[in-house]
Computed example of a mutant assay.
Amino acid sequence: MSLSVTDTALLSIALIDLAGIILWIGVCLHLAYTKMDLMLEHLKNCPAIMTRAPLRHGGPWGKLLLVGGISGIVTFPKFYLKRGEISSEDLANFPGPLKRKLVALQWSVICLLLVMISFGAAVKSGFL
């Protein structure tokens, strides 16, 4: 059985998306195990982070959730600043290279999930 060009392209997109999500998890876990103390030290005055800080003792899943939460907060700080859940001083003093990595991680997972959701919706609707 041979696949058509369309089927091959769709399969390639799905596999690349799945590989991207697995790579994203690996990068997040690497950051969690190597930079967690640095991230928490720079965000020690942020209630939104400190309420999530016990997740660091929750194994790989907890560390993944904590890095995801920190990257969301660093990427979209206005939402948390309005509610007083993060300190603007802590955010300003956060290391630039690490902040850029977290922002890139957040936007990449948003894009990967959008591709996966749109792919699933297209399959479910019978479009593909």
Rank of each mutant, 00 (worst) to 15 (best):
I49M: 07
M116R: 12
F79P: 03
E85W: 12
K99W: 03
G126I: 01
L112N: 02
L43C: 04
P97V: 08
L40W: 04
Y33Q: 06
K44F: 04
G20Q: 01
H42K: 13
G59E: 04
P47Y: 07
L31G: 03
R83E: 15
V123N: 03
M36R: 06
T75P: 07
N45A: 01
N45C: 08
I117A: 08
V115K: 03
V109S: 14
L3P: 06
R52Y: 06
R100K: 15
M116V: 01
K35D: 11
I49A: 07
A9E: 14
F127C: 08
L66C: 00
A122S: 11
W107F: 11
D7W: 01
K82E: 14
H42A: 13
Q106V: 08
G126D: 10
S12H: 06
A19V: 05
L102E: 03
V74Q: 02
G58R: 06
T6F: 13
T51P: 00
Q106P: 00
T75D: 07
L31T: 03
E41M: 08
I49H: 02
G26K: 00
E85D: 13
S125N: 10
F76T: 05
E89D: 14
L65C: 04
S108C: 11
L18A: 14
K101M: 12
F127W: 10
E85M: 15
H57F: 05
T6Q: 04
A53G: 02
D7K: 15
P60N: 09
D90C: 04
N45H: 14
R56W: 00
D90V: 01
S88Q: 15
K78C: 05
L10P: 00
L31N: 02
I21C: 03
I21L: 10
G72N: 10
Q106E: 06
I21D: 12
L18E: 04
C111P: 02
V109D: 12
A122C: 12
G68T: 08
D37I: 05
G58W: 03
S88P: 13
W24F: 07
A32R: 09
L38C: 04
C111L: 12
T8G: 15
I25A: 11
N45E: 07
R56K: 14
A53I: 00
G72W: 00
L128C: 10
M1Y: 11
P54D: 10
V103Y: 10
M50Q: 15
L3F: 08
T51D: 10
R100I: 09
C111Q: 08
C111K: 06
K99P: 09
S87I: 07
K101R: 07
L55P: 02
W61E: 12
G72R: 14
D17P: 00
C28A: 10
G96C: 08
A48G: 01
G96K: 15
F127G: 02
E85P: 08
L105I: 10
S118D: 08
D17E: 12
K78P: 13
M50P: 02
D37S: 13
S118G: 09
S4N: 14
R83D: 15
